[in-house]
Amino acid sequence: MMTPNKRKNDTLASICAVIENQERFLLTSHARPDGDAIGSQLAMAFALKQLNKQVRIINCDPTPDLYRTFPGVQDIEISATAKGNFDALVVMECSNLSRPGLQELQGNYTINIDHHLGNENYGDINWIDETAAACGEMVFDLIRFLGITITHDIATHLYLATLTDTGSFHYGNITARTFEMCRQLVEAGVNPSSIARKIFDSGTRGRLKLVGAILNKMDLEASDRLAVIYLNDEIMNDTGGSEDDLEGLVNIPLSAEVVQAVAFFKDFKGQPLRVSLRSKGDIDVRAIAVTYGGGGHANAAGFTSDVPIEAVRKTLISKITATLDNNSPDS
């Protein structure tokens, strides 16, 4: 029987063979990119450029303001189509080829790199590592396998990816492997406190007012174990906030000891309802998101829905409450 390490090394060898034998690469990730998507793409791009490869990054949505000062972000193209000529497509953090939101992705030689449960294995090479703390952790392994030097720019983006996708080292799948990688990134010149300040202490006035408005309208359900927060056009307009200000807001109610799970409803006119879920410990919100066609991690998941918010709210609160009850020490 093939061991996990043997399977991983065989997959990495296959990816490296493609990289060595091809010249033109297109990198992409999911719509509304987060820190892991941006960091993983740019770390991979800097690594490929060390090998004198031609690299383009195309995303369907702009990079959030929070990350625009990081190196290489200005080179990311925004388009609805994966246009141009390239030898291989590298898709990161996407369970299927619809997640990037780009047209004309099908039919290309595809390397699929993901750390989420439920990946559809749509690539010619599929590297799925559900034990990784972030996609950036996988990119680090690939870069080391390629024998590429971890430069300051590469290290910066790998640390960005890991710091954000673990919720500042709050979520599951953080292992000795994660901290060994971070140790090497610091050795390569990363300043952890500087990056943390850029991400967590550089918010706008609109974000500050947005936090106040959202918490003011928060509902506590299931004996205060579930926090339900809302955002709509009215709140956004009243506070002067923007989509870029939403990063990390869903985690704020978890700072209360009693709160074990959070449901964040984003209900904007002309758009599907978006729901983000977060939790602590053994509360598996991914299993709940899957019932609505979504996915993610056990402690960080989400989904979209065309059903009116009140209907989704009722069933979702019921499902999360049942999960909380089943994980209660008294159950």
Rank of each mutant, 00 (worst) to 15 (best):
G296L: 04
A311Y: 07
G294V: 10
V290L: 13
G293M: 08
K280D: 03
Y292A: 01
A298N: 11
T304F: 09
A301M: 04
E310N: 12
I283N: 00
V307W: 04
A289R: 02
D284I: 02
H297A: 07
G293I: 11
L277V: 12
D284G: 04
G295P: 02
A300E: 07
G293F: 06
I309H: 04
G295W: 04
R278D: 07
G295R: 03
F303A: 06
T304E: 13
S305E: 05
I309L: 15
G302S: 07
L277Q: 06
T291P: 02
N299L: 11
G296E: 06
R286S: 06
D282A: 14
R278M: 08
P308N: 15
E310A: 12
G295V: 11
S305M: 09
A300S: 14
D284S: 08
F303V: 09
A287C: 10
V285D: 00
S276T: 13
R286Y: 02
D282M: 14
A301I: 03
G293N: 08
D306R: 14
A300L: 07
A289N: 04
A311M: 13
G295N: 08
D284M: 03
G293H: 10
P308D: 15
I283L: 11
F303Q: 06
R286M: 14
T304P: 00
G281T: 03
G302W: 01
F303C: 09
A300N: 10
R278P: 03
I309R: 15
A298C: 14
K280L: 05
G281A: 09
L277C: 12
A300V: 04
F303S: 06
S276R: 03
G293C: 12
R286W: 03
G295D: 11
N299C: 08
R278Y: 08
A300H: 03
G296K: 01
G296S: 13
N299P: 01
G296P: 04
S276C: 08
A298S: 12
A298L: 10
D306S: 13
